[in-house]
């Protein structure tokens, strides 16, 4: 009797802890709140970036970089600081499991052509397969919104933004400002 009572103490403590700990919202509950800016399931309908189907590790790291300020932002830092590590992991897992859909975009064919040349000479060793390739550190670019691609390229191009991934800033510094729009147009034209 006595021994069984003692044995049950840790169990009671565990149960108590579960009961009092901050209940974590489900993946869907957390992610649904993001749709107001990133579109339903992360499939954005305008320049805010498409995040559906990006690699989980990439999304996790990007959210953490926003949260710590390592990556500058207009609003994402303020939003990312609202989530703890477990919630960031849950969000990343949710959006990584969704499907990327490349939106149709009206693009200038001349820009697309010029962008393709720049891509081949300067970017294709990492952003393989015309920007469709993605891994833990490389986001998919093919079919992203042109305006967003251009914004991020400008961020790398403007040294005062102090973006992470120094190699990207160095790579982009080779380009003229007009090249950025061409490059963005090329990736946006891909599916």
């Amino acid at each position: 009797m006595k021994s069984s009572l003692l044995w049950s103490i840790p169990l009671v403590l565990v149960l108590f802890q579960i009961h009092t700990a901050h209940a974590q919202p489900s993946h869907r509950m957390l992610a649904d709140a993001c749709a107001g800016c990133h579109g339903p399931r992360g499939q954005s309908a305008s320049p805010m970036p498409i995040i559906a189907g990006l690699p989980e590790a990439y999304l996790e790291q990007t959210m953490r970089d926003y949260k710590t300020g390592k990556r500058p932002s207009t609003i994402m830092g303020r939003v990312a600081r609202g989530y703890d590590d477990a919630e960031i992991d849950a969000l990343a897992a949710f959006f990584a499991s969704e499907v990327w859909i490349s939106p149709p975009q009206e693009l200038d064919p001349k820009q697309v052509k010029a962008g393709k040349r720049i891509h081949r000479d300067g970017c294709s060793s990492c952003h393989k397969d015309n920007g469709r390739f993605q891994n833990d550190t490389t986001p998919r670019l093919a079919g992203q919104w042109k305006d967003y691609l251009q914004i991020v390229l400008e961020e790398y191009w403007l040294w005062e933004r102090r973006m992470p991934h120094l190699f990207m800033s160095i790579a982009v510094s080779e380009f003229d400002e007009e090249d950025l729009e061409a490059l963005a147009s090329f990736y946006a034209s891909q599916r």
Partner: peptide, 14 residues
């Protein structure tokens, strides 16, 4: 300002 309009497009598509 760009994101303000983008927010509108996305929340209304949501």
């Amino acid at each position: 300002a760009t994101y303000a309009r983008s927010w509108f497009d996305n929340i209304t598509s949501d």
